[in-house]
Design a protein around this nucleic acid. Structure first.
Lengths: 209, 209
DNA sequence: GTCTATATTAGGATAGAC
DNA sequence: GTCTATCCTAATATAGAC
């Protein structure tokens, strides 16, 4: 018999269902069904479906802000950067239900809007820190306006890559491979690297294909 | 008194509401309310809400496929290309409700999935044609793998830019400025242009800011 | 073509027994 | 903590009069 508390099982199963079916398509009945508990029981643990969503969001937020706390004045290596991207894409994939129907979800759970945007800002800021670091190390030659545009592009891609990728095979929505995403992110930065770094970066990005 | 047929008014109003509120949040009652007609009347013209969505999708599809029919073996100029991007972003903006909750919408109207993916493929193909043309004219130096990656990136950006942009100001969902999107697309291609074209492209992209 | 009224259903949520 | 039964509401859709 499982030692995991029902409350946690609800969270885990909800997350899995949200990710695979899309949050709007998952009813409280489906969740309780999947867990073989009664709908009443579910509502004993959470007073609404929105509460489940919010709690999952909080977990997402915590993970993200933790991951995105990129130190400002540290020299970042290419390897550290690709590892960071890897972790980032994994985290996004784990909570991809948020991204898949972002506008919808945020419009129904209004309290999440500001919080999500905060995460987004941190994301862009993290990319900027990384690029700045590369520039300080003369690994990257890039104008301020280009950098702004690049960081926005990186943020956009970090958000939507997996959803976009899923579109190509909407049939099996269970698995998401973060690799292609990391590769794509590296490709975005590639043109701005100095020649030697560019070669290194190319090699690293190959590993993610 | 308006000469426009009720059926068309329903389509126009639905599109506007879908875009501003998100398709899932728009009920048939809201649509008929907005038009000052009865819900029964709405159902006289369309046998379901899904039918409205499908008909709007068909219009979107027609516009898109028409726009994306980029000739393969023609020399494309930078100006033509930016104009193309402009039209593309306008078309996407006009039907942005599709993109805002893509996964959700496609999962509820399954018949649209294949059709949407077809449009997506055409989009990528169009970008490839353009890049190929630039390469033939020696305006662009780019490896096949880079080009593949770039075209995917362009497709992703064309899809999600406006949704992403909206996130920054979720308050007023009425207006969407296609300019920033075109600019961002140009920035993506910029690094691959030959020096002279790069300068030209920079100037052109400035106009879109 | 348009209306009013109503049926149908589904999803979120509560009450009260065990 | 868990269950069963039930309520409430909102949304889709239909019927039938005008």
């Amino acid at each position: 018999m499982s030692k995991v508390k029902t409350r946690d099982r609800i969270l885990i199963t909800s997350l899995a269902l949200f990710n695979s079916q899309g949050e709007p398509n998952v009813t409280t009945l489906l969740i309780s069904d999947e867990l073989d508990i009664s709908p009443g029981n579910l509502y004993y643990h959470f007073k609404s479906k929105g509460d489940i969503v919010e709690e999952l969001f909080t977990a997402f937020e915590t993970e993200m802000l933790d991951l995105l706390a990129v130190p400002e004045d540290v020299d970042i290596t290419l390897d550290q950067q690709s590892f960071f991207l890897h972790l980032l894409f994994e985290a996004v994939a784990r909570y991809r239900f948020l991204y898949q129907d972002l506008v919808n979800v945020l419009s129904r759970y209004e309290r999440l809007q500001a919080r999500f945007r905060r995460v987004l800002k941190k994301k862009t800021a993290a990319f900027r820190s990384i690029c700045e670091s590369f520039r300080r190390q003369n690994m990257m030659g890039i104008e301020p306006t280009e950098m702004h545009s690049l960081c926005e592009q990186l943020t956009l891609t970090a958000c939507y890559w997996s959803a976009f990728d899923t579109l190509s095979h909407l049939d099996d929505r269970e698995s998401v491979d973060p690799g292609r995403g990391v590769y794509q992110m590296m490709q975005l930065m590639l043109p701005y690297f100095a020649p030697e770094q560019q070669e290194r970066a190319k090699l690293i990005s190959q590993d993610y294909l």
